[in-house]
Write a protein that binds this DNA or RNA. Structure first.
Lengths: 349, 349
DNA sequence: CGGCTGCTTGATTGTGGTCAACTTTAGTGG
DNA sequence: CCACTAAAGTTGACCACAATCAAGCAGCCG
């Protein structure tokens, strides 16, 4: 028997939803404002939450934010109910981690369909968590000492799920800890005043995110976004600090990661300063080829390539066609396959 | 009674030098090739070394290199005797840490003058070392624990002196440890294939250099050069590692330094990618204004400004005159004084 | 005083950004 | 499954910014 929580200030809509859901065999909890809705969610841990955006006391975004912050409720499927059809609001909701969006008016089928797919998807994710655990075992045993603690630390936490394009944190957010990617890819980027963004880092499975901000009493210096559906562990700051104090190997490991990071960024600085667009793009392609290749192909949008190389999308497009003519690669939409890495490496300025 | 070692394969030159020096009251040791010269230096710790460059067995550069590596002999004043007048050789010698250069033929006065000034200068430096020690006391007590060890570590080491433009290490050199600046300034830079260089970091008193390479089993990723006369401590790798294992506070401190470093470099990446030359130069000036201001003035060559902002020297020149017309700064040769930092900060793209 | 280095200014050129029109692809809903 | 629409990608025309080449100037050294 699944439990569903509905948070909605309009009584008509609320009542009609409850009716439909109860007829379908769900137990339904209700709240008429964000605050009490959040309290109910905490108390009952429903299997799914339906939530209006515009509400008294606390709006839907606020509810979602609080739920995400709390580990107990972070992975409950969350569906927004709203009259707004604007893309911006939609995107904002998705970035914050909403799983779906129902725009009013919606009929019985819409509602049931959305609810069922979300609940099913969530079940599948749960079983997946289990398999991800093997990765962790490997990791913890790799650090040698401190294994038990790290394991305990990780066991106590839940996995955070991000959908494609969802934001992990914004530049300026204050940090909650250290993230470790289980699978998927995350990019970190800085955004210029004019809105153009530059990708400062790409992270894959087993990589840490937020390491560079962990010990500083500062907010994040960049924005992190999921490139594809991604799951990660959040290791809370206090506990990581504790580990650092106990096990020098872990500190040493972190210092090494940061050092490598610095070297990469210095290399990038030199490239940006003095290399031609052709060469920069070639470098970016080679980097991607190493990091995120899938079946011999790189899958990446022009926009991302542009943000990685620090150039305009149009120029990316042009340069790629040039490269194709020169037999360096084969491209097809957002799929790129490198044919002559040799020449790309030696690309002159 | 001062002891001088002369290493020179030509017997005539050697004999005449010895005669002059002994007449002036110095004790003179002699060697006719680099290898035996180095052995003598190790054994007797002379107060000054005169050394030919072109020699059998081992050339003068080799001798200097070995002497510099060995702590016991690293701070013995070293003068090259040579027929070569080429700038390149001169520069190479100075980069390696030679204190002076005597080009043959030289007369008695040349020789005695050079010898005396070097010995005097060295005496003055020794007394200075004493005062630098206060800085260290402050540093060691700041770390709280580990103070005694750090002190012992530092006591066992000598100060390394670098003259302006002298190279601390080259990209590709393998590292010997961690440097800490006592006074002066060091810049680290990467050099592109075409010879253009980009300055990746500026370090002043109390800053560490080489931290980003310390734990990686890699060579230095950049070249470090003294911007002005500089003195630094070399903390050997093994001992630093030892400290890291014993005192988590030190690891934590290092992680913080590296984190800040990363944030700075990310900021720079964004600037390089999307900011105009005007804006980039403005940023560089502001950075310098914070770091290396002397009596309200920045003293820096156009070439360095260019390498900091990643632009051409001519463009630096032009942009600075523009800035001057706009009342943002006053310039006079390599001295620059910022008049309107407000506007420089707000510089639009 | 000449030679050298560092700085400035001018003229020229090319790279790559911008704007705009167009085509292709992919996602959505009937 | 197809049709429609929005998003992503491509191509062209144009132009501006900054690099390059070149020449001249100022300060500094022996």
């Amino acid at each position: 028997m699944k439990t569903i929580l509905i948070i909605e200030d309009n009584i008509d809509i609320r009542e009609s939803c409850i009716e439909i859901l109860e007829l379908s065999g769900y137990t339904v909890l209700q709240a008429d404002n964000g605050k009490s809705g959040f309290d109910l969610a905490l108390k009952h841990k429903p299997d799914l939450i339906l939530c209006d955006i515009m509400m008294p006391e606390m709006d839907g975004y606020g509810v979602l934010y609080l739920l995400n912050k709390n580990d107990e409720t972070a992975d409950i499927p969350f569906i927004f109910l709203t009259a707004k059809t604007d893309r911006i609001d939609f995107r904002k909701g998705m970035e914050m981690g909403a799983d779906d969006y129902l725009t009013k008016p919606f009929d019985d089928m819409d509602l049931l369909h959305a609810v069922e797919t979300r609940i099913n998807k969530h079940l599948r994710q749960k079983t997946y968590h289990g398999s991800a655990f093997e990765t962790l075992e490997k990791l913890t045993s790799a650090t040698g000492k401190g294994m038990d603690e790290l394991k305990a630390l990780i066991n106590g936490r839940k996995v955070k799920q991000l959908k494609k394009k969802q934001i992990l944190y914004y530049e300026g957010d204050s940090l909650s800890g250290l993230y470790m990617i289980l699978n998927g890819n995350i990019k970190t980027m800085k955004i210029a005043e004019d809105g153009r963004q530059f990708i400062t880092g790409l992270y894959g499975p087993d990589d840490y995110i937020g390491l560079d901000t962990l010990l500083l009493e500062e907010a994040f210096a960049e924005t992190a976004e999921a490139v594809e559906d991604t799951s990660l562990y959040l290791l809370p700051k206090d506990q990581v600090l504790n580990l650092l104090n106990k096990y020098p190997e872990i500190s040493t490991q972190f210092i090494k990661i940061l050092s490598n990071n610095i070297h990469e960024k210095e290399e990038q600085l030199l490239e940006l300063a003095y290399h031609s667009v052709r060469k920069r793009l070639a470098r970016v392609l080679l980097r991607l080829n190493k990091k995120v290749k899938q079946a011999d192909q790189i899958i990446v949008s022009r926009e991302e390539l542009a943000a990685l190389a620090g150039i305009a999308v149009e120029t990316v497009s042009r340069t790629l066609t040039d490269f194709k003519f020169e037999g360096l690669l084969e491209k097809n939409g957002n799929q790129i396959q490198l044919l002559n890495t040799e020449k790309l490496v030696k690309m002159k300025n």
